[in-house]
Amino acid sequence: MNSPHLPTSRPQIMGILNVTPDSFSDGGRYLDFDAAVAHGLSMRDEGADIIDVGGESTRPGASRVDAATESSRVVDIVQALSENDVPVSIDTTRSEVAAAAIEAGATIINDVSGGLADPQMSSVARESGARWVLMHWRGHSKDMQKLATYEDVVAEVHAELMERVAEAEAAGVAREKLIIDPGIGFAKLPEHNWALSAHLSSFVTEGYPVLFGSSRKSYLGKLLADGGNEQRPASGLNDATLATSVLAFEAGAWGVRVHDVRGTADAREVWMATKNSLRG
């Protein structure tokens, strides 16, 4: 029998704050400045270690907004949260938005394109010293599902993601600043997501912190479809997300990106207490 995974550090919870009208789960709920800041503070109080602020939807099929619109949605909110001592990440693929958010107080760039969408992102990461999440990505949201073709999804995602890491390091970004993410739902069919989730530990063994984000995604809804529906709506997927998050903790993930912070924080406490009891 394999030895149980014993955590060396507390897994991070990244609370999702979408300041957008069209995100798949909470689009439009936090467009108002006061509502967005209040929700960010609430997630912090519920146990989030980081609040991930995004001003452009990356759901499948989403159209892009211009950089000025994206910046106008996020920068003041990042600043307000940072002034309240909330650690903030900026969810963007644009270097100019990342730079403005870092100036406002963000300390992490969560780049779903892994640097592919904007070649200047590596310069922003290097010069700012911010941590940089490199996610596996094959194209923008509008067309990305057409790119979900794999012979061995785990091996191919692993190889493509390590290429992004190598390019980031070649551009001068310090290894210790990098976080990797296999990109659940991005140019992936449900069977690809399940395979990546099952083999998450193969990414962890590379030695980089691994972020896992399955929160309320459609592959969970398709698994749990009921009542003759094609899939269960996002609002009914918190428990399923929680299950995947605990599995990610077990695989050694550095953190999870979620909408439901309180439930995830409670599960983390239970998981940590159970694992720590194995230390004797």
Rank of each mutant, 00 (worst) to 15 (best):
V19E: 00
T20L: 04
D22C: 02
Y30D: 02
L41P: 01
S42V: 08
S42N: 15
E46C: 12
G47W: 03
G47F: 03
I51H: 00
S57G: 05
R59T: 09
R64A: 15
R73F: 07
D76R: 11
V78Q: 06
Q79C: 14
L81F: 02
S82G: 11
E83R: 15
V86M: 07
P87F: 05
T93G: 10
E96W: 12
I102G: 01
V112P: 02
G129D: 09
R131I: 10
W137R: 08
R138P: 09
G139Q: 13
D143W: 11
Q145P: 08
Q145S: 11
K146Q: 15
A148L: 05
T149M: 12
V153K: 02
V154H: 14
V157A: 02
H158K: 09
H158P: 05
E160M: 08
R164K: 15
G172K: 12
R175E: 14
K177A: 15
L178K: 06
I184D: 00
A187P: 00
N193E: 12
V210F: 03
F212M: 01
S215F: 02
K222L: 07
D226H: 12
G228Q: 03
N229P: 02
P233W: 09
A234G: 09
S235Y: 15
G236Y: 06
N238R: 11
A240C: 05
T244F: 08
T244D: 00
S245E: 00
S245D: 03
G255D: 02
V256W: 01
D260P: 07
D260V: 02
G263L: 02
R268M: 04
V270K: 11
W271V: 04
A273R: 12
A273C: 10
K275S: 11
K275R: 15
N276D: 13
N276W: 14
S277Y: 13
